[in-house]
């Protein structure tokens, strides 16, 4: 009996591993920064280069940091989700404009609407390296103590907002 059950068992185990493997997205590299304090940075603001925006401005509240750029196609798809989130007033969204051109970025916000409380302009992408950014869009969820609690890789969708983001924000807001 064992002689028949053994290959069957091995097959079942292999099929199980492959089934899980199919569901994994190799493009989603888990961030080692989750659970760590936000990386320090100070950058000029997109709207006004004379003013600064930095990690200090993100602390003390539950907030999102959204990495975007005008050359990023999926950022455009994500934009209306961010806009809706802003209108709901649940959580403040900050932007990190990654390797972009100021004029284009300003026009983008003018035409499509501005969901951000403030946008840091990371022209060289140096601050983004410290955040472990490897593509756009990426969205970090930051808690009141300035700890990164979650990272969305790829565009936020209504489903992701409903299923993951909003419950997480509620939980983080309840923390002291």
């Amino acid at each position: 009996m064992l002689r028949y059950l053994l290959p069957l068992g091995i097959f079942a185990a292999l099929a199980g591993f492959l089934a899980v493997g199919l569901k994994l997205d190799p493009k989603e590299v888990p961030s080692p920064l989750i659970g760590k304090p936000i990386p320090e940075f100070v950058l000029p603001r997109l709207e006004d280069p004379k003013r600064r925006f930095g990690s200090a401005d993100l602390k003390g509240q539950v907030a999102l940091l959204n990495v975007w750029a005008t050359w990023c196609v999926s950022c455009r798809a994500e934009h209306q989700v961010l806009q809706a989130l802003k209108e709901s007033g649940v959580v403040p969204i900050y932007g990190l404009d990654y390797k972009d051109e100021r004029d284009k970025a300003l026009r983008w916000l003018q035409v499509l609407g501005n969901p951000y409380e403030a946008v840091a302009f990371d022209e060289k992408g140096r601050a983004a390296i410290d955040w472990g950014v490897y593509g756009t869009p990426e969205t970090f969820v930051i808690d009141k103590r300035g700890i990164i609690r979650h990272k969305f890789i790829g565009p936020l969708t209504e489903e992701k907002v409903e299923d993951i983001l909003l419950p997480l924000v509620r939980k983080l807001k309840a923390e002291t």
């Binding site: 590299v29 961030s31 920064l33 410290d130």
Partner: peptide, 8 residues
């Protein structure tokens, strides 16, 4: 690099 991007 590992601190930013992980063992990957």
């Amino acid at each position: 690099l590992v601190a930013r991007y992980g063992d990957f």
